[in-house]
Design a protein around this nucleic acid. Sequence first.
DNA 1: GTCTATACCTTGATAGAC
DNA 2: GTCTATCAAGGTATAGAC
Lengths: 183, 183
Amino acid sequence: MQDTREKIVGLADHLIKTKGFNAFSYKDISDPLAIKNAAVHYYFPSKADLGQAVLDQEISTLESGINSWQALPEDQQLRHLIASFENKCNSHMVCIMGSLSPDYNTLPVNMQERLQQFSAAVIAWLTGLLENGRKKGIFSFRGDAGDRALIIVSNLLASLLLSRVIGENAFEKISKQLLDDIL
Amino acid sequence: MQDTREKIVGLADHLIKTKGFNAFSYKDISDPLAIKNAAVHYYFPSKADLGQAVLDQEISTLESGINSWQALPEDQQLRHLIASFENKCNSHMVCIMGSLSPDYNTLPVNMQERLQQFSAAVIAWLTGLLENGRKKGIFSFRGDAGDRALIIVSNLLASLLLSRVIGENAFEKISKQLLDDIL
DNA sequence: GTCTATACCTTGATAGAC
DNA sequence: GTCTATCAAGGTATAGAC
């Protein structure tokens, strides 16, 4: 089934966001699907292949999200981004960048490249969004839009990490202040 | 030698900040010290013991840092905190919270507890620092000091993670904006 | 305190039958 | 596509000699 492939990628994505790339194994994937680890290797010969598939999916999900918000006012688009992080927080997940960046040095090269690609895409999009929103008077902030985009991504990423350690309201507090600072 | 113990903890600390807790092994420690892995187990029977020792050292280093800055004006104290992150960035390390929080669910309980303790200590100290600095007119910001402390920790933590993926100037940009926002 | 030696387990991965 | 069977490698950890 082609379906199995998708289930594997979905599970791997979830495992990366809850346990980390180095901490999950093929068994963590084959058991819930009630298949054997060899079946997983049939779809993804190496763990690097699986990791790459997860990142490719993350990138395309991001892009289709961005596309679907295109017609909305800039502040609404930003709220959608924040909402997607809120969902992760409620499901006790961190984002893909928050999970993989500490392990960056241990990742296979193909995953490093994809992770860079993902980060660049988020920041480029958010930079444009902030610039346009500022022109229209929707956002108000000092300094370069690219720097501000960096700050926002940085906060959202870290808020999920902190929530895991110091409690759930870390995300709420941070995301609220984030919006207050530019609206 | 008692010295060996310290070298082990130092190496483990460095390994956590470069490769992550789940990605380093006893061999990564015994090889550079030119000893055998059994010698490491002599000092730290389990990896959880070693991880705990690293966190205990992090906590006491933090506390002695905080103490040594006590007499300085609040903005100087904050700059010292930022400088300590800059050092990590230049050495291609992330901070202990940035490294361990994504792996939180996979950590032994004693390490989870210490990590919570560490995070709480940083945030409590920074909250007080911001409150005092605001009273004196050194800092200027809206909202609760605790929320602002959360934002700053969140940014510093994430800036090291982002630097690793998208390049070195991420830290510089973020830390600069951080100060600009409250000075 | 450090060594050798080793037990035991998990992991990623492959070969070949069905 | 999925299975059984198996592998080599590497990991944590322990026992006991020196």
